[in-house]
Amino acid sequence: MSEGATTKSPPERRAAGGPVLQDEVTRALTAAFFEELAETGYGRLAMEAVARRAGAGKAALYRRWPSKQAMTVALVSRAATAGAVPDTGSLHGDVREFLRGWITALGHPLAGRVIPDLLAEGARNDELGRALLSTVRDPRREQATEVLRRAVERGELPPETDIELNLDFLGSPVYWRMAVVHGPVEEDYLERVTAKIVAALTA
């Protein structure tokens, strides 16, 4: 080889089970979990069936989640909760972005079948019910609380604002629209419901 020529090292190959493959397996298991949960319900959900639907081994499933309840709580809370609501600089903008995150969570293709089943199962299974409250309800209410706190700090809401009562105004209309009525939630609806909620909060 002539002087100055460069040699190219062969591209590195990822070891089996590396990060990319692990992520793919996790995504497959997650999709399989929601499909199986929607099809069978929590009561008849079997971890082995989830692994089989995902085309993965049981060991891969149990390495991630030690039990059916742990898997359910982890994956449902991940789907239902998003990151912090961005500070848009106004109550209207913050409410709109909070609702947008709620719409994304409720917009999961299987949400309409999964949510009613989990609510019913949580009422029968105290341990599951408490776990879902602490990992799904509480984080979402904390996000909503932060929206209201920022509005109080800006002077958009009075200091004596009833935070607890107003929390019920924030997510309820969208939940009713999507989970009960199954109505469309296009951008125009988001803007209109945001305006109504803000009007109620500031009345």
Rank of each mutant, 00 (worst) to 15 (best):
E48V: 12
A51I: 04
M47I: 11
G57N: 13
I103E: 01
L91H: 01
T88I: 06
V85M: 07
A80T: 09
G43C: 00
V76G: 12
A59Y: 02
S77M: 11
D94P: 01
A54G: 09
A70V: 04
G41Y: 11
R52W: 03
K68D: 08
G83S: 13
F98A: 01
L75D: 09
A84R: 05
W102Y: 08
R96M: 00
W65Y: 12
T72D: 05
R100C: 01
S67E: 08
A84Y: 01
T72C: 14
P66L: 06
T72V: 07
G101W: 08
W65R: 03
V50C: 09
A51K: 05
H92T: 03
V50L: 11
I103M: 10
V50P: 11
Q69R: 06
T88L: 12
W65D: 06
P86T: 11
A82C: 14
G101Y: 06
V95D: 00
A46K: 14
S90I: 02
Y62P: 06
V73Q: 14
K58I: 04
R100L: 06
D94T: 06
G89H: 03
Q69W: 01
W102L: 11
Y42V: 08
V50T: 02
E39Q: 12
T81A: 13
S90L: 02
G83P: 15
T88F: 05
E97V: 09
D87P: 03
T72N: 14
E48Y: 09
G83K: 09
A59Q: 08
A84C: 04
E39R: 13
T72W: 05
E48L: 14
T40L: 13
A74H: 07
G83M: 13
R53D: 02
R100P: 02
G43F: 00
A80H: 10
G55V: 01
T40H: 15
G41L: 12
R52E: 12
T88G: 05
A56M: 13
G41Q: 11
G89Y: 07
A54F: 04
V85P: 03
E97F: 05
P66W: 08
L99A: 07
A49S: 10
I103S: 07
E97H: 11
A74C: 09
R63I: 01
S77G: 12
L91S: 00
M47Y: 11
E48F: 09
